[in-house]
Nucleic acid binder design. Structure first.
Lengths: 225, 225
DNA sequence: GAAATTCAGTAACATAGGTTACATTTCGTC
DNA sequence: GACGAAATGTAACCTATGTTACTGAATTTC
């Protein structure tokens, strides 16, 4: 149980909450953990949903899929993330997003009642929740912008810049296949391939499989806005 | 001042709040109203923003615009709506949306501090705020879906069905020019025009300028999913 | 009700990206 | 290191939508 508490305390929902405060909270609510195996569906799109999840272990993806099987992978959740915060307080029924475990996954579901109890026990939890929800609004608005205005090449440049800002190296490797990357961009794999060819002729970046090399950082910055 | 209170009480932020409760709240916070004229910018995209607005009077549109002047009108706010709720509690700086007054507009800005004061004065306000934020997440997720997977024709069918569900008539008029409608769909006007021609040959709906007639409701339902 | 302005129709052309299909490369496993 | 499976490259073709530019219709303004 201690390990569980430790995982929980790292969650964004419990940011700035001490372990003691968390113990106190856990006395009031009964948590159970759920486990999922890779590719298992945690919550299907358009399924009635009234729980928020805290990811203890593993990676979860949030995808949209249309009737033709086209996939758009909108989000990716890692350990400590809060998943589907809008499920709890919305007046609408459901999200158009399916949550799928990408790896072996453990998470804790919380009901509206449990979250409200936590709010009343500790104000900081509420602020953390509000922040998460607000961040999600902005995240989605930015996704929408990208989806509306960016070409595949634009998306690649933005993606590479974002990775650079994490790794701080001119050369790195990503842990996605081209197929996964194409889902992330919401485009077909051959189209992504074609754009990569064009981009590799540009002299700004160079890619080879999962390897990415930044050749001209100034121009990359400009291309990625 | 009474008229102001009455407008406020209709706002979604004060849903289920009595006028007396509202008077009490207003004693604690100092509200000022802002006025805007048509096409005036209330808040520019990528501008630091830390206020939420309650729309007292008028219509406000939320638009995205790229460097080439392409316009995507994402949202439309009417009297009593809460505008830009994610401004307050997000850890990120700004929204990629510009708020523009569409008509003569009056609104009240609230700071984070003011909203927090209200939360502590009345729990229902907090719930209303949470609901608004959550609804916005779902709204944006649905927009993203539409943007990713719907053709112009799909969008038209969905739009017509949505209007039908409001008017409950097989024949009605919209208050948008084709140009505005094309912005709403995030497409060019000639492309919208072309799609309207195709749609008018389909026998499902018929449009002429701002007039829309539903000819085959069953098929409309199916097309709009 | 004429003139000016905005709005809408439309055509020719350009372009991005999707589709299908197949060849080639790489990777994981024995 | 050989084999099969998965991932990737790539080409030919298709389609939706954008662009530009012009015409004509509808609305507004005086």
């Amino acid at each position: 149980m201690n390990k569980l508490m430790l995982s929980l305390s790292r969650s964004k929902l419990f940011k700035d909450i001490t372990l003691e405060e968390l113990e106190l909270i856990s006395d009031h609510i009964n948590v159970k953990t759920l486990q999922y195996t890779p590719e298992e569906v945690i919550q299907a799109q358009d399924e009635m949903a009234d729980k928020v999840y805290i990811l203890l272990e593993g990676v979860v993806k949030g995808v949209m899929e249309d009737i033709n099987g086209h996939i758009y992978q909108v989000e990716m959740f890692n350990e400590a993330d809060i998943i589907a915060p809008a499920n709890l307080f919305s007046s609408r029924e459901n999200l158009p997003i399916t949550l799928i475990a990408k790896t072996e996954t453990r998470l804790i579901p919380f009901t509206r009642g449990q979250i409200l109890t936590m709010f009343s026990l500790n104000r900081k939890i509420e602020e953390n929740f509000l922040r998460t929800l607000s961040d999600k609004v902005i995240f989605l608005a930015e996704k929408l912008w990208e989806n509306q205005f960016s070409s595949i090449e634009d998306k690649i440049y933005k993606f590479v810049l974002a990775k650079y800002l994490i790794y701080r190296k001119n050369e790195f490797e990503i842990n996605l296949t081209h197929e996964e990357l194409s889902h992330r961009f919401g485009v077909s794999r051959p189209s992504l391939s074609r754009s990569l060819i064009k981009i590799n002729q540009s002299g700004i970046i160079n890619t080879k499989g999962k390897k990415i090399k930044i050749l001209d950082f100034e121009q990359l910055l400009q291309k990625a806005e």
